Amino acid sequence: MKDIAEGKAAIESRLEPNEAVKSSILCAYNARMYAHFSPYRGILAATDKRLLFYSSLFGSPFYLDIRYESVSSFRHEKGLMIGGDHIVVMNNGEREAFQYFNGCDHLDSFIKAVQKLNRLPEGSIHV
């Protein structure tokens, strides 16, 4: 991903009718590629229907679509080994980890936007 504007445009292009972005953060997603994990730097957006991540690596777009109904846990964690703030989402039993970077919205604003949507199962948000 070249810049934040590219990421926001890519997210906007994937929205469904009547879907709106409520907040977005700049982050890195640790994508599982075969037996290894690769960090994808991109944008995680909270819409009124889902969490949507976009990155572009070597010109190839990468999207991750997480519907709220498939989330069993949404938590904010502090990185113990590598530091920093992380959002960890349990999505259909899979652990999806995002490391927060400054840019776009502040992490606290993003978490509050997700809470305010009230779309995640009761008791699934851990801050």
Rank of each mutant, 00 (worst) to 15 (best):
K2I: 07
D3V: 02
I4V: 15
K8P: 00
K8S: 03
A9T: 11
I11E: 06
E12W: 07
E12P: 00
R14A: 07
R14N: 09
N18V: 06
E19A: 01
E19V: 04
A20I: 14
A20F: 12
A20T: 15
V21C: 06
V21F: 08
V21E: 10
V21K: 06
K22P: 00
S23M: 02
S23K: 07
S24I: 08
I25P: 03
L26M: 07
Y29C: 01
N30L: 02
N30T: 13
A31G: 05
A31R: 12
A31N: 11
R32G: 01
Y34I: 09
Y34N: 08
H36M: 08
H36S: 09
F37M: 06
S38P: 02
Y40G: 00
Y40W: 08
Y40C: 00
R41A: 00
R41N: 02
G42W: 04
I43G: 00
I43W: 05
L44Y: 12
A45R: 05
A45I: 09
A46C: 04
A46H: 05
A46F: 04
A46D: 10
T47N: 04
K49H: 09
K49A: 04
K49M: 04
R50W: 09
R50C: 02
R50E: 08
L51A: 01
L51V: 02
F53K: 00
Y54M: 00
Y54T: 00
S55G: 01
S56T: 04
L57D: 02
F58L: 02
S60P: 00
F62W: 11
Y63L: 01
Y63K: 03
Y63W: 08
L64S: 09
I66L: 10
I66C: 06
R67Y: 12
E69V: 05
E69W: 06
S70P: 01
S70F: 09
V71F: 10
S72C: 04
S73N: 13
S73K: 14
F74I: 07
R75L: 06
E77L: 01
K78A: 08
G79M: 11
G79P: 05
L80W: 15
L80R: 15
M81D: 13
G83L: 06
D85T: 09
H86F: 13
I87W: 11
I87V: 13
V89Y: 14
V89F: 11
M90N: 13
G93F: 05
E94H: 08
E94C: 01
E96S: 04
E96K: 07
A97L: 05
Q99E: 15
Q99V: 12
N102T: 13
N102I: 08
C104G: 01
D105L: 00
H106Q: 13
H106G: 06
L107V: 14
L107D: 12
D108E: 10
S109C: 03
S109F: 08
F110Q: 05
F110I: 08
I111M: 10
I111A: 06
I111C: 05
A113P: 04
V114H: 09
L120S: 12
L120H: 14
P121C: 04
E122G: 00
G123Y: 14
I125Y: 12
V127Y: 11
V127L: 10
